[in-house]
Design a protein around this nucleic acid. Structure first.
Length: 569
RNA sequence: CGGGGCGUAGCGCAGCCUGGUAGCGCACUCGGUUCGGGACCGAGGAGUCGGAGGUUCAAAUCCUCUCGCCCCGACCA
């Protein structure tokens, strides 16, 4: 492609509304343009990347034996109503009404729709295993779209669904998909980690996320350096931490005027956060629940909800805290608390703790569980850096940030049972299909790749998903230069190497800046000076020194470029 | 939805507090000089100041309502 005929609207200044590197660079590089909140145009370069990601995903998913289908994005409400998700999804569902007043919605995911295919088409154990997938647009009215392509209201997802006769079969399908996912992320040259995850709203038992490791990521991950344990913090198991043994001292009420936070109280009373019993009020199923964790820990709301047997818990409002404790926020405590009380296992072991007295400006010292309060003990804290690994019990967990690029689940019979998707097994018994589901955020991956591969000058595309492989820059308009470039351009294309030729009538500086911004993996410069000496210049985008490039005789240029393109991931 | 902020030329912004007839940089068009890391000179085109209502002789500026967007939280690929 000749730059002069392409649509690559690069801009010098970052858009004011962009906060993420990928959003800034994709916009500046002319890959995408915002249309509305969480909606983007893919301009030619952006679309080329998207297509390459899709191709890798298709190749690897096909390799597992899965079959590509295409389901509608516009869905009649009846299917989601069958499983109750029409209500459960709430405002996240884009709801539409047709001319006859019928209820429809745009598909946020397609478990119900594939399950409908399955209940019509899969009748015998002989039909399985079977995995169906699609690469398709999804719609979710996110509470807060953000980060450019990272979180959109309309986005491209690869969603696959497996159907098996039993749990063992489902585990097998799941394993096959796990291998495919590894290959996909490896081919895209992403540094990622597969982590244990919470199945969340999709439901099911086993699930793992593929987290691309970047500091700007929204998800917190803990991982063990000694074994392969890694988990999203919200799904991480925690081990109780023993407190130093002490003889119980007498309960004592202390005046702590205006000191409500852990930080203030520890300083004011001269105690460590490990001695604090942080008491938080949540609302679960309409009731106020007090949760006690150690001062240096945070509540894991997923674990808390599970411990309470509810779907969701919410932090209580300031007013609700006052109502529940009779004190201002900052002075809640378990001692004398009348409502439901949940105590984290580690907090339960704290001897002579410090906690709010449910009285504004008052705390208790030397609080002992069993003597001063009871409550239900459960692991409800978030895993933290330095925790002992719950798997090998040896390593100390480290913390990482990631972007969720893929998620795989074993669903079991949740959807098949609800929708009557059954088959006849060898014993002529009617059984529900055992399902798994597997998602990859295809459009999100475009942005994720940039979050991980960029520098101060712009993007650094991995070869496998770069919009073109080679950025050919010509300096000046001399006939010799243009002719040499043209020959190189055509020779490379004949070898299947995709070349973007910047043939614009621009000054060299602008061309180099745009080349760095767009970030194609190999830059080839043809200029009068080099050509006079019989050379062209080759510079990988990963080389950060602007002056450093390889001089190659014109005759060897094609072979040299080809070897670079073939070698890179 | 809770909290914060922003809507002025294609993009990035100033002007608003203290009303007086809209400006800067980039981009764009034309002419010229330039040409190996975002050149320079000259000339130009381009804006219902998000929308509606109000106050006023006069509103981008003050008031009310409204729409849109961004950022921080709860959700997710």
């Amino acid at each position: 492609m000749r730059f002069s005929r392409a649509l690559i609207p690069t801009v010098k200044e970052a858009p004011a509304d962009a906060a993420n590197v990928s959003h800034v660079l994709l916009t500046r590089g002319g890959f995408i343009r915002r249309v509305g909140a969480g909606m983007y145009d893919f301009l030619p370069l952006g679309l080329r990347v998207l297509r390459k990601v899709e191709t890798i995903v298709r190749e690897e998913i096909d390799r597992t034996g899965a079959l590509e289908v295409l389901m509608p994005a516009l869905l009649p409400a009846e299917y989601f109503k069958e499983t109750g998700r029409y209500d459960l999804y709430g405002p996240t569902l884009f709801r539409v009404t047709d001319r006859k007043g019928g209820d429809y919605h745009l598909g946020p995911t397609h478990e119900e729709i594939v399950t409908d295919i399955a209940r019509r088409e899969i009748r015998s154990w002989r039909d399985m295993p079977k995995t169906l997938y699609q690469v398709q647009v999804k719609f979710r009215d996110e509470p807060r779209p953000r980060g450019g392509l990272l979180r959109c209201r309309e986005f491209i997802m690869k969603d696959a669904y497996s159907f098996d006769v039993d749990e063992a079969g489902a585990a097998n399908s799941y394993e096959g998909m796990r291998v495919a996912y590894r290959r996909i992320f490896d081919r895209m040259a992403l540094s990622y980690r597969m982590v244990a995850a919470d199945p969340g709203a999709i439901g099911g038992s086993t699930s793992a996320e593929f987290q691309v490791l970047v500091d700007s990521g929204e998800d917190a991950i803990v991982a063990c350096p000694k074994c392969d344990y890694a988990a999203n913090v919200e799904a991480a198991k925690v081990l109780p931490i023993d407190a130093p043994d002490e003889a119980p001292a007498a309960l004592e009420k202390v005046h702590t005027p205006g000191h409500g936070t852990i930080d203030e109280v520890t300083k004011f009373l001269g105690v460590t956060p490990q001695r604090m019993l942080k008491s938080l009020v949540y609302v679960a199923g309409g009731n106020a629940v007090m949760v006690v964790v150690r001062g240096d820990h945070d509540v894991n709301e997923v674990l808390l909800a599970r411990a309470l047997g509810v779907d969701e818990v919410f932090m209580a409002s300031e007013a609700d805290v006052k109502k529940a404790t009779g004190a201002n926020v900052g002075f809640a405590g378990p001692v004398g608390f009348k409502g439901k009380l949940v105590v984290d296992r580690t907090a339960a072991g704290v001897k002579n703790g410090v906690t709010g007295a449910n009285e504004t400006d008052q705390h208790f010292k030397n609080v002992v569980r069993g003597r001063d309060f009871e409550g239900d003990v459960a692991d409800v804290r978030l895993a933290a850096t330095g925790d002992t690994c719950p798997s090998c019990k040896e390593g100390k967990l480290g913390s990482y940030k990631g972007i969720e690029a893929g998620h795989i689940f074993i669903l079991g019979t949740k959807y098949s049972a609800a929708m009557g998707a059954t088959f006849l097994d060898e014993a002529q018994q009617k059984k529900p299909l055992v399902m798994g589901c597997y998602g990859i955020g295809v459009s999100r991956l475009v942005a994720t790749a940039i979050e991980q591969h960029h520098d101060a000058d712009g993007m650094r595309w991995p070869m496998s998903i770069a919009p073109y492989h080679v950025h050919l820059v010509t300096i000046g308009k001399d006939d010799v230069v243009v002719e040499a470039a043209k020959q190189l351009y055509e020779a490379l294309w004949h070898k299947g190497i995709e070349v973007l030729w910047d043939d614009r009538d621009e000054r060299p500086g602008s061309k180099f800046k745009d080349a760095d911004l767009i970030g194609l993996p190999v830059r080839v410069t043809v200029g009068g000076k080099g050509l006079a000496a019989g050379n062209i210049e080759i510079k990988p985008r990963t080389e950060s020194d602007p002056k450093k490039s390889e001089l190659v005789p014109v005759a060897d240029a094609v072979a040299r470029v080809e070897s670079l393109v073939r070698a890179a991931p």
